[in-house]
Design a protein around this nucleic acid. Structure first.
Lengths: 267, 267
DNA sequence: TTCTATTTGTACGTATGTATA
DNA sequence: TTATACATACGTACAAATAGA
């Protein structure tokens, strides 16, 4: 290993990283210099998925077929597929084949987790866990207002069921992080917005992972957590918009207080 | 190419895609079967960045050095680095070296753009442009309330300057998408939340890219757009929380109306 | 400017591990 | 269990790009 520490910025003239420009070079085009073979293959595969309207799980050509069809080496094909795999745009199953991926928010989770863990020597522009929490809070406080009117009684019953299970787990002394996640995802399902639950789930997962790496203990006051969630359900059932938002805000105050306390304990 | 259309779900027993588990297998550990060499290298490189506290732009070991240090082939190293490059965790410069990346939200932009473009045959769970717009709207309506109290007069002047430049561009018949982006990013800079401007910028970019691919025309009523932004600045200057949120809501009503209109035009 | 060393990009061949049928 | 298809990994060679002498 050369290049020890000394985080010196390189000259950095061209921040090139040309990702997916889609129709930037013609449809499946070969007109006018394809810059990097590997990047070109990435675009070709994505364009192939779009053109054939393939859904998640649909089979993609094998590596050998892509080699022949695009006239490139196996190495280039594999590097391109690895990059698309990291974006969850394709899914590679060893010994079986390559398939269209879910295009989930897994890359966001990975990236945010990495950035949050890397900011210990906190400098400008660094990402703190509090930033993620604040975004979650703003989102959920705004979303709960829009969901009060559309939540059905059946959905409210399901929410209350989750709270009940939380209570049971709390009495048994068992942590219930998954129930918390389920509660928040369930609440916004009726919005019919496919992005909302995934985005909230992504932030939630980042929080949990970072907390895990930092060795934070499990919820020290599960009874309080249960009560906060029950308050939310009560306000939702009463169709009380302001009350619901307030209950959500209180819930997040608790989360933030805990995070701040743990940070003090470590720092 | 075999495997034509027929988007049939495969058996799909194991949804394996083991990404970055961080300390899942010991620190830099090799204890107990490292499943995939390439994935293992990804984790090693990330752990190296964390351990050495390297900042964005810092040089990483060359491919040859990684080969020697980890005892793997160059192909495996390259595949791992390609995956990390897709996540913007490393930056590869041809003929020069590999560096720590910005860990930006580029992967999110790519993924959301891809998903939105792929959902033309709209089925369940598909991601629509309206979903992204709604998240932006909820975020900005909540954020503007929190920013009213902390915005300095200098920042308000800068915001008004952007609106003025919008007005000039509009009079000259020049579209001003970048000024719109600048306005929204500038507004939340004083929050000190590193995630907020990047997340909003990501959603904004996805919207613009999808609109571009779909061939939507530029803003047909730039004067209205300018007025909406000016209304926001006026409310902010008056420290009018409710008015600011209302102005932001009106702004988004306009965007949604335009998107709906364009969608009807195509569909 | 030209040359050179370093480093990444692409290609080919071969062997092995893995999952499906 | 066997056979087949496919991804995984390694090694080598050469091409292309960059920085610096």
């Amino acid at each position: 290993m050369s290049q020890e520490s000394a985080p010196q910025e390189p000259t950095h003239h061209a921040p090139v990283n040309a990702p997916l420009n889609f129709l930037s070079r013609g449809q499946v085009g070969q007109a006018a210099g394809p810059r990097r073979v590997s990047s070109q293959i990435q675009r070709e595969v994505m364009q192939l998925i779009l053109d054939r309207k393939l859904r998640a799980g649909a089979p993609l050509p094998t590596e050998a077929e892509l080699m022949g069809a695009l006239g490139v080496s196996r190495n280039s094909v594999r590097e391109a597929l690895k990059a698309l795999q990291a974006l969850d745009i394709v899914e590679i199953r060893h010994g079986y084949g390559t398939y269209v991926g879910q295009a989930s928010l897994t890359p966001l989770v990975d990236g945010l987790t990495f950035r949050t863990l890397a900011q210990q020597g906190d400098d400008s522009g660094a990402l703190a866990l509090g930033d993620i929490l604040q975004v979650r809070e703003v989102l959920e406080e705004g979303l709960i207002r829009r969901v009060v009117g559309v939540l059905s009684d059946a959905e409210l019953d399901r929410l209350e069921g989750v709270v009940t299970r939380m209570e049971e787990a709390g009495r048994a002394g068992v942590p219930f992080p998954e129930l918390d996640r389920e509660f928040h995802e369930l609440m916004y399902a009726s919005l019919g917005n496919a992005l909302v639950p995934q985005l909230l789930g992504a932030f939630w997962t980042v929080y949990r992972r970072v907390a895990g790496v930092r060795g934070w203990t499990d919820d020290p006051t599960p009874d309080v957590t249960v009560r906060r969630h029950r308050d939310i359900v009560v306000a939702l059932r009463a169709r009380d918009v302001e009350g619901a938002q307030r209950a959500m805000a209180v819930h997040f105050r608790g989360i933030e207080a805990r995070a701040a306390q743990e940070s003090r304990g470590v720092g």
